[in-house]
């Protein structure tokens, strides 16, 4: 009897580890296969191949090339300027997004369209345009010269170019979040006695922050990889305003393929680490936001 009874009890379905969480959506196998194939073909294999080529030169030469003063400085310029530009954009991009979302004024659509220009414009066009203005004989460059400093052909010029190309990333990521913010929340803060500034810092900014960090990450990543707009305005003076991508191209032009690959691999490594760090920061702010 007991044997029959125990045999009749319904066993819970096996709940071990499974690669795919239960879902009703079909086609996982195909879609996942395609995703992997594409990623491999377009991202993983080329980058992996590059890393392999770089490994060919051996550790000692790898570090020697990477840690050469000129290369180190180029890294410093590339990442420093991209970070500076992303942070400047974080402030001004937020202001632009705020103005576009919160106010209705004539010409709003025009400004809205202008924000996207850096997306569409070939970056070399941006480079030429910016250089023309900021070079010592350009409008703004002349003013700076009179004040005793240079903009074009210095890291300041690079930052300006990167601010230009990074702006839409911040504006377009923050805009929808600002739009979704409930005006009642601000009114609630006001009725509780908060000043406009307190409302912004304590109520609005925490709500926008995850989107803002995403925007900064995108702008930063774009800035690190930017080439076209920078090479014109940077002047490419070694150890002053030379960026890593330019250094790589220079090595290639000298047929120093090994050197180019090593620098490229190092750049990839650093970029990956920074993006990973930003991702963790994002996770952290989102979990605090606790939607």
């Amino acid at each position: 009897m007991t044997a029959v009874a125990s045999g009749a009890t319904v066993r819970p379905a096996k709940r071990g580890w499974s690669f795919l969480a239960p879902t009703i959506l079909p086609g996982f196998g195909t879609a996942f296969g395609f995703t992997l194939a594409y990623l491999c073909l377009i991202v993983l294999i080329p980058l992996g191949h590059m890393a392999l080529r770089a490994a060919d030169v051996g550790w000692d030469r790898f570090w020697a090339i990477t840690l050469a003063p000129r290369v180190l400085h180029a890294f410093y310029v590339s990442f420093g300027c991209a970070l500076a530009a992303a942070l400047i954009n974080a402030v001004f991009g937020l202001v632009v997004a705020w103005v576009l979302v919160r106010y209705r004024f004539p010409g709003r659509r025009l400004i809205d369209a202008m924000v996207d220009l850096p997306f569409a414009l070939p970056t070399s066009v941006a480079g030429i345009a910016l250089t023309a203005i900021y070079a010592p004989n350009g409008w703004i460059g002349a003013l700076a010269k009179a004040a005793g400093f240079k903009i074009a052909f210095t890291p300041i010029g690079i930052v300006i170019a990167l601010v230009f190309v990074g702006l839409p990333f911040i504006v377009r990521t923050v805009e929808p979040v600002l739009q979704d913010l409930d005006a009642e929340v601000e009114e609630a803060a006001a009725s509780l006695g908060a000043t406009r500034w307190q409302t912004f810092i304590k109520v609005l900014l925490p709500a926008i922050l995850p989107a803002l960090i995403t925007g900064v990450a995108l702008a930063f990543a774009r800035g690190v990889g930017e080439y076209g707009s920078v090479i014109f305005i940077a002047g490419n003076i070694p150890a002053v305003s030379e960026i890593v991508p330019l250094l790589i191209v220079a090595r290639l032009e000298q047929y120093d393929y090994a050197g180019a690959t090593v620098i490229a691999t190092a750049m990839m490594g650093v970029s990956f680490l920074m993006l990973l760090g930003i991702n963790f920061l994002q996770r952290w702010t989102r979990s605090r936001h606790a939607r």
Partner: peptide, 16 residues
């Protein structure tokens, strides 16, 4: 903010 008025909104408007 200077009126010392407590306001309860229809959709609560809590700080998320």
């Amino acid at each position: 903010r200077d009126r010392k008025v407590g306001f309860v909104f229809q959709h609560y408007a809590l700080f998320r």
